[in-house]
Design a protein around this nucleic acid. Structure first.
Length: 830
RNA sequence: GGGUCUGUGGUCUAGGGGUUUAUGACGUCGCCCUUACAAGGCGAAGAUCGAGGGUUCAAUUCCCUCCGGACCCA
């Protein structure tokens, strides 16, 4: 056997790692291949990569999704687009604050703000580095030179400038409204950040007394909120209480600074069958209370302050924490003979997603992005976006149906983008910084170029530089933005908004938003809201929504369930001969999974092949290896086999004297080319990969190679040309899926890396051009060829013959007459 | 309680009114060290497409009900 150019006997993880290291080592070469060149003249394709949030380990499901985004980036380059595949890291937020608190065992608010921010930055930087390494390990072809961090001054200045623009346009407002508030973490949170959990609580039946002396029993799980009661309600058709409607009823506990009685009214939302059928409405026990207060125009009471303690109106219970007050109120009720009954009951309560603390609804002056009046506009914009898969559009529309309140964007935390506002003259005036500057109002003066405007009317009053001496009590805002306020700019930022206006012109709407379906209601929704508000446009051309990574029991992988798999363990599995073991906790048992070798190429191939986009996918490293490592082995060996034969004529020129089997396989391959490029165009990774895999592990090696083996050994230049041309172009098409693999083979065999191709290979076979039906006719024979070969193999097996032994009495069907000599040689027919 | 999605050989998965005797892979079983590949090759077995109704000449595919799963919301 002549020496193959590929010396290794098989694909290995160590080889993969070597190629990968080389791939990222040469910065200039890397940049030539993958960096964004906005002036190349090609069609710009910006991918709004989800900037990952660094939190220690990177989750396997997320890494799987990123690798598919990379497949899209690479396939779009192959289609000739100028791709910007950005690498961003989302570093703002409460998670890193929690991590620092946990590491130092000290609460954030006991620190000096500056000192705490530094601690956060250090910690997040360590996590970020781990992530940068994993990103390369899985083969991401991001433009790492342009890395953006959402906590960098540049990124934050964009967030702040957008705020200033929207504020001036009246699209951001300040208001005293009921807010969902986490008293333990001391911050407001958005609807989207609320979770539910089940807890045992006490359902207390309290005896209230009406002005006519009637006793009424009211059940509640929140007796401490009686002091904030605004109205008592019964159902309009509940005949039991008809006589009480319109009368006043005394609060059963002492209160201060307010009326000690409220009126009894009717309301259809009251459930007559619950408890006694009488409901007290407090500001604010839940969202229904908020709705009732708004509907009836009642003045809300502030019962709980920012520290989670009862306010003055609670009278004797003022200054107690909510839980203490609840206990004390119950004791008081009991002591004063107002407690009718008490029982334990399971109840669903809202808690904060990040802190897991029960949340309260309290009145706060906060900043809001107006969104309730934008829904129709947004729906029109969303119509223009192509969703992959189309059904996932529904997730977004469903969420939008549920939006009833504006988006509260201010938070009382620290490691976030600051709200860029100063107040002056007793809060009557507002100072806003100029566009493009990052400001930290809690510690800085307003910068040169700031504007002064009226807080209520938003009228421009003058420049800060002129008015400086006239303004009194300038106070910087201490609050910060919700992190979604930052991350919902990612597509604007990466497309060049504010920073590169000429690029933005060509790059917006952003070509693609790829993301997981679990953040449709946050990231996707808020991003689209921003583009509708700022630019009156849809934010994207395509939205690609993938499913979730599931454990072997079909449950979402998550830290809390303990069923997650660390990405690095899969990517490094097999390196240096080390195998890996995973123990995964199930609902009532634990499984142990083992694998010998996976690596990035096998991992990517698995994700590309195993399920359609949008479906949840089961992650089982054992299966990944079993199902897909063999595919790589096969393709590697086909290439290795080919690599022992010389190429005597240019691979770009199709020779004219093709044998019939060469023409036949080229007709099949041409079909593959067409199908795969169509799939790449449609962001259809699954079809592209399946097509390539089917061809490369099936018909090509099993049928074509077997047919031409003897010709190859006889140094037939045409057969060698055909197999090389197919291997070369195959690697080009395959490079988006397994870039290191395809790069290595193409470079060693053809001196040219598949990852650098920026067009789909074109196959110009003369006989196909002369007779347009010829390719299809040949391809129509494929089934018969495969059947015939199978039949011969079977016949040999049944006669106990090995495959290279001669066999008699086999007749070639008429349709395959043209292949007679080939088939006779292949099977040694007599 | 409501919404959305989903249920295809042992496992994962494709397809989506007739082209279907349902795709592919893993696993299983049998044969083969045939000069690319045993970390292989070839072949075989294995599914009344969750259950029940309906629409239709025709349903795995459309509709309804039920059962199971996932996600989201109240």
């Amino acid at each position: 056997m002549p020496t193959p150019k590929l010396p290794e006997k098989r694909w290995s993880i160590d080889l993969e790692k070597q190629i990968q290291e080389d791939h990222y080592a040469d910065a200039e070469l890397y940049s030539r291949r993958y960096s964004f060149k906005p002036n190349s003249g090609k069609e710009i394709f910006v991918i709004d990569t989800p900037p990952p949030y660094p939190s220690g380990t990177w989750h396997i499901g997320a890494v799987a999704q990123y690798s598919m985004i990379d497949v899209i980036a690479r396939s779009q380059r192959l289609l000739g687009k100028e791709v910007y595949f950005p690498w961003g890291v989302d570093r703002n937020g409460i998670n890193i604050e929690f991590t620092v608190e946990k590491n130092t065992k000290r609460k954030m608010k006991t620190y000096d703000r500056e000192e705490f921010l530094q601690l956060c930055e250090q910690t997040i930087e360590e996590f970020t580095n781990a992530m940068r390494t994993t990103a390369r390990r899985v083969g991401l072809s991001c433009d790492f030179d342009r890395e953006y961090l959402t906590d960098s001054p540049n990124y934050r200045s964009v967030t702040q400038s957008i705020f200033v623009d929207l504020f001036k346009q009246g699209k951001i407002v300040e208001d005293l409204r009921p807010n969902i508030y986490d008293p333990v973490e001391g911050t407001t949170i958005a609807d989207a950040e609320v979770e539910r959990t089940t807890r045992m609580t006490k359902l207390v039946d309290v005896r209230w007394t009406c002005e006519d002396g009637t006793d009424v029993i009211i059940s509640t799980t929140r007796p401490e909120l009686i002091c904030a009661c605004g109205v008592v309600m019964v159902h309009p058709e509940d005949t039991r209480y008809e006589h009480l409607i319109g009368k006043r009823i005394s609060l059963p506990i002492p209160v201060e600074h307010r009326d000690s009685s409220v009126v009894i009214q009717t309301h259809p939302s009251v459930k007559s069958e619950f408890g006694s059928g009488v409901l007290m409405v407090c500001s604010f026990g839940d969202q229904n209370d908020v709705a009732v207060f708004r509907e009836l125009g009642l003045q809300p009471f502030q019962a709980i302050n920012l520290d989670g303690k009862m306010t003055d109106i609670a009278g004797p219970f003022a200054d107690m924490s909510v839980l203490d007050a609840r206990k004390e109120v119950i004791s008081w009720l009991e002591a004063n003979n107002r407690l009718h009954n008490i029982e334990d009951r399971e109840q669903e309560i809202p808690i904060s997603e990040r802190g897991k603390n029960p949340v309260e609804i309290i009145l706060l002056k906060e900043w809001y992005v107006k969104q309730t009046d934008m829904q129709d506009v947004m729906k029109n914009h969303i119509e223009e976006i192509e969703f992959h898969p189309p059904r996932n559009r529904q997730f977004l529309l469903d969420w939008m149906e549920n939006i009833t309140i504006d988006w509260p964007i201010s938070r009382r935390r620290w490691y976030h983008t600051e709200i860029p506002v100063w107040y002056a003259d007793n809060g009557q005036k507002i100072i806003l910084p100029p566009s493009g500057t990052y400001v930290q109002p809690w510690k800085e003066e307003p910068p040169v170029g700031s504007e002064v405007i009226d807080r209520e009317t938003r009228e421009f009053l003058g420049t800060y530089d002129e008015m400086k001496s006239l303004l009194t009590d300038i106070v910087g805002e201490e609050k910060v933005f919700d992190t979604w306020m930052d991350s919902s700019n990612s597509n604007l930022f990466t497309s060049g908004y504010l920073n590169e206006p000429d690029v933005f012109e060509k790059a917006f709407p952003t070509a693609l938003r790829p993301q997981g379906k679990e953040i449709v209601r946050t990231w996707l929704y808020y991003t689209l809201l921003k583009s509708s508000l700022l630019l009156d446009q849809p934010g994207f051309k395509h939205v690609w929504i993938d499913g979730l990574g599931m454990d072997p029991w079909g449950r979402k992988m998550s830290k809390s369930l303990g069923n997650g798999i660390d990405a690095d363990s899969v990517l490094e599995c097999g390196a240096g001969g080390r195998t890996a073991t995973w123990k995964i906790k199930g609902p009532d048992s634990q499984v142990t999974l083992n694998a010998n070798k996976i690596g990035s190429e096998c991992f990517r191939l698995w994700k590309a092949c195993d399920a359609q986009v949008g479906d949840d996918f089961q992650i089982n490293p054992e299966d990944i290896e079993k199902k897909y490592y063999g595919v790589l082995t096969k393709l590697f060996n086909v290439s290795r086999f080919a690599s022992q034969f010389e190429i005597s004529t240019s691979l770009d020129e199709v020779p004219e004297q093709l044998e019939i089997e060469d023409e036949w396989i080229l007709s099949e391959f041409q079909h593959v080319l067409t199908k795969v490029s169509k799939a790449w165009n449609e962001l259809d990774i699954y079809t592209a990969t399946q097509t390539l895999k089917g061809f490369g592990t099936g018909i090509l090696p099993s049928h074509y190679l077997e047919m031409v083996k003897s010709r190859l050994y006889d140094d037939d230049a045409i057969a060698a040309w055909t197999i090389h041309r197919i291997v070369r172009d195959f690697m080009t098409l395959f490079s988006p899926i397994c870039p290191f693999f395809a790069h290595h083979i193409s470079l060693v065999l053809y001196g040219q890396s598949a990852v650098e191709c920026d067009s789909i290979p074109q196959l110009q076979v003369k006989s196909f051009i002369e007779d347009p039906t010829r390719a299809a006719k040949l391809r129509a024979l494929s089934n018969q060829i495969q059947e015939f070969n199978g039949m011969v193999w079977n016949a040999k097996k049944e006669s106990g013959l090995s495959l290279n032994q001669p066999i008699q009495s086999i007749f070639i069907p008429n349709e395959l007459a043209a292949f007679t000599s080939t088939l006779v040689r292949m099977h040694n027919l007599e």
